[in-house]
């Protein structure tokens, strides 16, 4: 014989388990849509064609150049496996710098150059004073975090 309290408890747990499973399944099925951006590798694994996409990676050291028109910037972002060249005429956020994670939104041109209509900076989860960061850099222990992971697995 179950008491009423026990029965209510089991019903509640059952309902929550059902709800949790349903949510997990839905979110897994729509993973591509939940992902806010793709990685440069995703552009190779599954080319977006003419679709507007967001791509995130690290700005490669020494790759940032001001284009002659005085407005545009050109740089490369990488996820270490693949890189893509970006050009944009939009203002860059304060955190934009070489070695920093950034997200760009726009279209991949036929020439392989990505034309971005928006550039956002993504910072990592590390916080420290400048002196500490400088010391880490000097000792070579400073590693920038990749801003994301590939959404599509290669060969899938």
């Amino acid at each position: 014989m179950m008491t009423r309290k026990k029965r209510r408890l089991y019903m509640l747990l059952l309902a929550l388990a059902g709800l949790g499973t349903a949510t997990a399944l839905t979110l897994t099925a729509f993973e591509e849509n939940v992902a806010f951006f793709f990685s440069p590798s995703d552009l190779v694994t599954k080319p977006p064609g003419d679709k507007r996409v967001r791509v995130g990676g690290l700005v490669e050291g020494g790759s940032v150049v001001k284009v002659d028109d005085g407005v545009s910037t050109r740089f490369t972002i990488t996820d270490t496996a693949h890189s893509v060249t970006i050009t944009t005429d939009r203002p860059l956020p304060d955190l934009f710098r070489e070695g920093q994670g950034v997200l760009v939104e726009g279209r991949l041109g036929a020439d392989g150059v990505f034309v971005a209509s928006e550039v956002l900076a993504k910072h990592d989860e590390k916080y420290m004073p400048k002196e500490v960061a400088d010391a880490l850099k000097a000792s070579g222990q400073f590693k920038p975090e990749l801003p994301g992971k590939p959404v599509y697995e290669a060969g899938k």
């Binding site: 793709f38 956002l120 989860e125 916080y127 959404v151």
Partner: peptide, 22 residues
């Protein structure tokens, strides 16, 4: 998922990634 927001800095498996002064 890939988000613009950065991962957790305090409640993470390998300990906080925030300098003690902060």
């Amino acid at each position: 998922w890939n988000t613009l927001h950065q991962p957790a800095s305090v409640l993470r498996m390998d300990g906080p990634s925030i300098h003690g002064d902060m």
